[in-house]
Structures are given as structure tokens and as C-alpha cells.
């Protein structure tokens, strides 16, 4: 087993996802298959190889420090599931 049901639960919490028991079992087995497949990578010799995080090597892409118009207030909040006055509203953190 690469990943246990408990680990699936931990990862799900990190990702803010909830699964039913049934889904958890199914996911655990599917993730195990996928992760087993990933083991293939261990065969590749990567000693001294710099990890590649960009397909094309660029550097120093900057913008100048100038202020441009922000979105209108209405447009900023127009997609909000819930807005109160000028704010987005969310339920409080329950301790």
C-alpha cells in the first residue's frame, strides 16, 4: 500500500475536500494504483540533474511600479456568492 485510508483523509483535509466512506475506499484504491505506477520514476537516474520548473528558461520579467485603475467596486463583488455592503461575507471560523 502506497497510501492508507487515513492518509487519504489527511490529504483530503489539506485540500478541503470531503468524501463519503465509499468514495474514500474507491479513492484509496485508485490512488494506490496511480502511485504504484509513479514508482517507475525511481528507475530514472537523476543524480545531479537540476529540477525543471519552466518549459522555457526566462528570467526577470518585470512590470514598472505604476498604478492603473482597479476594478469598479461593483465589478469586484459582482460574482460574489455573498456580499455585505462593500465586503465579501463568509461564515465565521468555528472553534
Amino acid at each position: 500500500m502506497k497510501i492508507t485510508k487515513e492518509e487519504v483523509e489527511y490529504v483530503a483535509h489539506l485540500a478541503r475536500l470531503d468524501f463519503s466512506e465509499e468514495e474514500k475506499v474507491k479513492f484509496t484504491s485508485q490512488l494506490n494504483d496511480i502511485l504504484m505506477y509513479m514508482d517507475k520514476l525511481n528507475e530514472a537516474d537523476t543524480a545531479g540533474i537540476e529540477p525543471m520548473s519552466h518549459a522555457i528558461a526566462l528570467q526577470n520579467a518585470f512590470r514598472e511600479d505604476t498604478v492603473k485603475d482597479s476594478l469598479s467596486h461593483e465589478l469586484s463583488l459582482s460574482n460574489a456568492p455573498e456580499a455585505r455592503g462593500p465586503f465579501f461575507r463568509v461564515p465565521k471560523v468555528i472553534e
Binding site: 520514476l41 525511481n42 530514472a44 537523476t46 540533474i49 529540477p51 525543471m52 520548473s53 518549459a55
Partner: peptide, 14 residues
């Protein structure tokens, strides 16, 4: 084991 290793193999593929 996963992300870093994959990024290294990615360099080899390139």
C-alpha cells in the same frame, strides 16, 4: 520523492 523527482526527470525528457 514525487514532485522533485518528476521535475528532474522532466529535465531529462527535455
Amino acid at each position: 520523492a514525487y514532485y522533485k523527482k518528476a521535475s528532474q526527470v522532466r529535465a531529462l525528457i527535455k
